[in-house]
Amino acid sequence: MNAPFVYYSLALDLGGFEVTSNEWSSFMNIAYRYVEALSNRNSATFFPFIDWWSHQASTADLLRPVQFPDVLPSNANMSSHPSVLHIEGDFTSMHHGLPPSETKYDIVVTLFFIDTARNLMSYFETIRKSLKDGGTWINLGPLLYGSAPFLQLSLDEIIDVCEGLGFEFLDTDPKCGELTLNGKKARGTTVPYGLSERSLSKNAYKAQFWVARKTKNGV
């Protein structure tokens, strides 16, 4: 069972990127289709805080509107070659039956994603198979395991397993957070989640960020 977002990016040239995104959740896919169909900035409005009765400083805060989209989806300009292709379905099988030349990417970005795996090893294998040799895997997200996982690895175990699969973890900018573990290159950064800045409470993850390169070595 796959949930939040995974983005594959295929570099074309200095002019830009082609991006293939993937999402399993039907609820998120419905929202994606709706936003994709919008053709004007800030053309839609919703009230995300209207049912947040707890931890409020004022009733007026519940009624604050939010307009979207602040940036138009690339497909909204109806170009003949849109830069984003969205695939709905299972991350680990969405490329089954396609030739390897069509399923190898320069960059894979996993955003609030890897902890949604029921089989974490299948995620790592899919990420590795989706990258060209020398390709880059960028991750940001917590380790909040759900979906009845078969395996729940700690951060140091994830790094050890992925190094065994042929990933080399790279140095990253200290602006991305503090090193979580001595001798490891993953960084932890506080990421608000479902946060209203005017609320009397806060919810945030110590999300883990890393950049890893796929090498020719590994099992």
Rank of each mutant, 00 (worst) to 15 (best):
N2Q: 01
S9D: 06
L10D: 11
L14T: 03
L14V: 04
V19E: 10
S21W: 07
S26A: 10
F27P: 04
N29W: 13
I30W: 00
Y34G: 06
L38R: 04
S43F: 02
F46K: 04
D51I: 09
W52R: 04
L62K: 13
L63I: 05
F68C: 13
N77R: 14
G89T: 14
G89H: 14
D90M: 08
T92Q: 09
G97H: 14
V108F: 10
R118K: 13
N119V: 01
L120Y: 07
L120N: 03
T126L: 00
R128L: 12
D133I: 12
D133A: 09
G135S: 10
T136G: 05
I138K: 14
L140H: 01
Q152V: 00
L155G: 06
D156E: 15
E157C: 09
G166E: 03
F169C: 12
D171N: 02
T172P: 02
D173C: 08
P174D: 14
P174H: 08
G177Q: 11
G177N: 09
T180L: 08
N182M: 06
R187V: 05
T190H: 01
Y193L: 12
S199T: 02
S201T: 09
K202D: 11
Y205Q: 06
V211M: 10
A212S: 02
K214Y: 01
